[in-house]
Design a protein around this nucleic acid. Structure first.
Lengths: 133, 133
DNA sequence: ATGCCACACGTTATAGCATAACGCAATTGA
DNA sequence: TCAATTGCGTTATGCTATAACGTGTGGCAT
């Protein structure tokens, strides 16, 4: 069943869901000041839980966060490795999945006898709209 | 021909080369205080250049830096996408390359009409030595 | 040589990201 | 009832990164 979120978690998730692109923790904080948020920790704690539930993603190369593009599975099941295409111009983020990538990365890691816990794939570039060549 | 480095750039590169694992900018700063470094910018400026020359890599998920594992090519030629295996236990970083991954990621991005500039692949997990099951 | 430009460097200050440590309140379950 | 857990709020602090200023030097065209 769907994870029951607390008030703060719901507020943070809503902020991310309704945002155009990724948001930093401090941007979220500013957006939620009217709802009683005062300190960064209130945001970070909610973010940690939402990450744990798989409802949001952290973009390492931006130090920011996006809502997961697959709102359906509030269960904690994975859909494999996620790759993010991040447009340097408009900031839009596209979530992509490909079983083949996962397979090849596993093979690569296996070759080094490395046990994978979590994989980050982020592609910086320019999206279709912003590539007005 | 090999890029001629400045004194600061050389110091920073040496620090990274001789380090066991990745170093943060501030860790590098501390290591170089005896050599006259006083401020973060001295480190960041050197890091920027070294990144530009392709002599070091930035690990987004750690906010830190490693010397490139291929010291030979001081020219700016790429060897395709680099994937990093980062051990959560010992901190060691292994640099990996695979043309197939690059190909699949290109295909993925192409499907979204996304123009790739730079790709980050970081795998967190446990290396062979630390997987003492 | 003069003037200009590009670049590395140094310093101070500030902005942006993240967590430590404390205490309180509500919930749960033995 | 009494712990144990969990979420919450606050203050303080630490880590990461850049802005903005000025200095000195080397190259180079005029």
């Amino acid at each position: 069943m769907a994870q029951q979120l607390t008030k703060n978690q719901t507020l943070v998730l809503d902020a991310l869901t309704h945002a155009e692109g990724p948001l930093s923790a401090y941007t979220i904080l500013d957006k939620l000041r009217d709802h009683g948020f005062r300190a960064p920790l209130q945001v970070y704690r909610a973010l940690d839980k939402l990450l744990e539930f798989g409802m949001i993603h952290r973009l390492e190369s931006l130090n920011s966060f996006v809502a997961c593009a697959h709102p359906d599975h509030h269960h904690h099941h994975d859909h494999g490795v996620t790759a993010f295409a991040i447009c340097e111009d408009c900031g839009q983020v596209t979530e992509m999945h490909d079983a083949g990538i996962e397979e090849r990365l596993s093979a690569l890691a296996g070759r080094e006898h490395f046990k994978t816990e979590k994989t980050t794939i982020e592609i910086r570039g320019h999206c279709q709209n912003c590539t007005c060549a």
